[in-house]
Structures are given as C-alpha cells and as structure tokens.
C-alpha cells in the first residue's frame, strides 16, 4: 500500500490534478487548434484559394467576410484570414523565443544568486529590484525606434523580429530570477544536496544537475504566464508602429490597422482581435491550471 503511494511521483500527481482542471485542459486543446491553424493554415489557404499574406488586390479593396475570404479583406485587398494566421505565427514565435530567452537568463541568474548567497546574492537581487522599478518598456521603445531594422538580420529573418526577441526576452526574466532564487535558497539546505557535497560533486554540477531541475514546477507555471505577457508587449510595440513592419504582420499590427478602420470595416478589428484575445485567454487559463497542479503552496485544502 505504502509503495503505491510513494510510487505516485510529484509529476504524476500534478498530471492527475491538472486533468481534473477541465477549463485548463480545454484551453490546451483550443491553443493547439490555434497553433495548428496558424502553422498550417497559410499553406492550406494558398492551396484552396491561392491567397498569400502579402498578395494584394487593390481592385477588390476592403470587402466583408465572404466564402472566398472568410475573414474579409483589408484596404489593400489582402485576405484577412491568411494575414491573421501569419500574424499569429509571428506573435507566437516572438512570444515563444522571448520566453525561452527569459527562461535561460532568469534561471541562470536566479540559480547563481541563490546558490552563491551572501553578498553576491544581495547585490544581484538589488540589481533586479532596480531593473524592476525602471520603465523598461520605454527603453524598449527607444531601442526599437533608434535602431534601423535593416541593419540587422538573423537567419534570414527581418531585423525587427530579432530585436523584438532580444528586447522582450531581456526584460521579462526579472520575476523568474526571483522565483528561482527563492527555490534554490530553500533547496540548497536539503539533504540530497548535502549528500552530493559529501561525495564530492562539483558545485556547478550540484547546482545545475541537482537543484535547478527541482525548481521546474514554479518555473513552468511562471513561464506559461510569461508567454501571454510577452505577446501583449509585442502587440503593444507593434501597435505603436515600433515592432513588426509591413508587409509582415503580427496580431498587434493587425489590431492596430483594424482599430483605425473599425467604424467602417469592423471585421478588420473583430477577427484578429478575437483570435488574439482567445489565445491570451487560453494561455492564462492554462497557466492557472498548471499553477494549481504544480505549485503545492497554492494547492487547495
């Protein structure tokens, strides 16, 4: 009996709890559909109708949703559905890569700070405090405004993407660093770390092989909430005309165009806006479910 109880590891336990969180599971399904829609949609559309995201049809101009253009077309006669899919690709990619950047920086920084401790720790954390209280998005705005995108290119991608990845990733690691540090501080007191020390494992190995993997729960939870916030920041910058540039599109730029024309051509706002809001909604619900499942402190009694 007791063997069975011990056999259910933290992860199995979490998985069981998460699956009971119906809304969270539903969100994961919807998200998968949205991702597939954005990833494979453009090919499908070009197969069926032949539209691409930059293909203009000035003669057609803005047209309301119809059978040949399910989401309608924009002022230049471009198919809005393909543009929404394409915008989704960009937004999701930026969010994913920026979150990865913040993950690497935040986990490393927090782990080192917590593990080394003492003065190094208090200095490193003070630095995080200072950065947290700066209006960093203003700095990103400055950065995006002054650097001409064409001067940079990265694996053939437009420079504005690369900048966005870097800038957004570099500003969202702060909270993560704090969380990881807190975890490491308590984990390094644990017996298995003492044991590793005693048998002569190198500190770096202890930190990254034994301690960091144990901080994974909170890290996953927080990252799942970083993705929507990065997506919002990307959209925010694109909305200001500082992010993704024409003819590329992201959900932010599409919503910006849509909100300018919403009185006359409401579909231009409705479709990209709804898609984006739905995605963010699902990401937040997913994060909520993950937190209930993975964060023992937030567990309901």
């Amino acid at each position: 009996m007791s063997e069975v109880v011990q056999g259910t590891s933290l992860w199995q336990d979490a998985w069981r709890r998460w699956r009971r969180h119906k809304v969270s599971v539903g969100s994961a399904v919807v998200l998968t559909i949205i991702v597939l829609f954005c990833a494979f949609g453009p090919q499908l559309v070009s197969l069926i109708w032949g539209w691409t995201y930059e293909q203009q049809n000035i003669a057609l101009g803005p047209s309301a949703p119809s059978l040949s253009h399910p989401f309608g077309t924009d002022v230049l006669g471009r198919d809005l559905m393909v543009r929404t899919m394409h915008g989704g690709r960009v937004s999701l990619l930026v969010a994913f890569v920026a979150t990865s950047v913040s993950l690497v920086v935040g986990v490393t920084y927090g782990a080192i700070s917590g593990y080394v401790g003492g003065r190094v720790d208090s200095f490193m954390m003070r630095f995080v405090d200072v950065l947290m209280s700066t209006p960093y998005l203003l700095l990103v705005i400055v950065l995006m405004a002054v650097i001409p995108p064409n001067n940079v290119s990265f694996f053939g991608l437009d420079g504005s993407f690369v900048l966005m990845f870097g800038a957004l990733g570099l500003v969202s690691w702060l909270v993560l660093a704090r969380i990881v540090r807190g975890q490491v501080l308590s984990l390094k007191q644990k017996e298995f770390v003492e044991a590793a020390h005693a048998i002569g494992v190198k500190p770096r190995t202890i930190l990254f092989r034994h301690i960091v993997p144990n901080t994974l729960g909170p890290v996953i939870v927080y990252s799942s909430l970083t993705i929507p916030s990065v997506m919002l920041s990307e959209a925010f910058l694109s909305f200001l005309g500082l992010g993704i540039r024409e003819p590329q599109a992201s959900w932010g730029t599409l919503v910006n165009d849509g909100s300018n024309a919403m009185v006359v051509y409401p579909w231009l706002l409705v479709f990209p806006g709804l898609t984006m809001a739905l995605t963010l909604f699902c990401l937040n619900f997913l994060g909520d479910g993950l937190r209930d499942a993975l964060d023992p402190n937030a567990r309901k009694s």
């Binding site: 919403m262 806006g273 809001a277 963010l280 937040n284």
Partner: peptide
C-alpha cells in the same frame, strides 16, 4: 477578471469607443 487580463487595452479601447461613444 480573466477576460480583463486577456483583452489587450488597444482592443478594449476601440471596442469601448464603438459601444459607448459611437
């Protein structure tokens, strides 16, 4: 509240204008 977090303000703004102003 979750809707509030998920709807970007530059979507909410135009929508509010559409409903309550126009």
């Amino acid at each position: 509240a979750l809707i509030g977090i998920s709807v970007p303000n530059f979507v909410l703004g135009p929508v509010l204008v559409l409903i309550f102003a126009l």
